[in-house]
């Protein structure tokens, strides 16, 4: 099996508009989704990221006080999973609970195989 990384794109603007109950329910959806992946032995790791960040650019000579990409392209979190092919991984990504709330994307990338 290969390892893939899901990069969840899009910010937390929607999150902030929801009530605590809705947020809690949303996290239960995440738990169910990742739980199913874990039950198949395909979960590796994953985290949500804080919206704030810094970026080192220009060969390390300057630092900007924000993530490189923002808005719809902001990386909001990631998930590492195992799958046989990028097609299977993409299929799995369709279940991402993030799609319940907004249209922003999930980028599916294969991790460089270890040798």
């Amino acid at each position: 099996m290969k390892e893939f990384m899901f990069l969840f794109r899009g910010g937390d603007e929607v999150w902030d508009t929801k009530s605590p109950e809705e947020q809690q329910e949303h996290m239960q959806h995440w738990q169910q989704w990742i739980g199913e992946i874990a039950e198949q032995g395909k979960f590796v790791s994953g985290e949500r990221l804080r919206t704030q960040g810094k970026t080192v650019i220009n060969k390390g000579t300057s630092i900007i006080d924000r993530p490189l990409t923002e808005g719809k392209e902001l990386v909001g979190g990631y998930l590492r999973i195992k799958a046989d092919s990028i097609e299977e991984a993409t299929e799995m990504a369709k279940g991402c609970p993030g799609f319940r709330w907004d249209a922003s994307g999930v980028e599916v990338r294969e991790v460089w195989p270890e040798h």
Partner: peptide
């Protein structure tokens, strides 16, 4: 353990 695995991610720690 699959259930305990979910404790390692902040996506699932709370709900788990």
């Amino acid at each position: 353990d699959p259930q305990r695995q979910l404790l390692t991610s902040n996506y699932t720690l709370g709900a788990t």
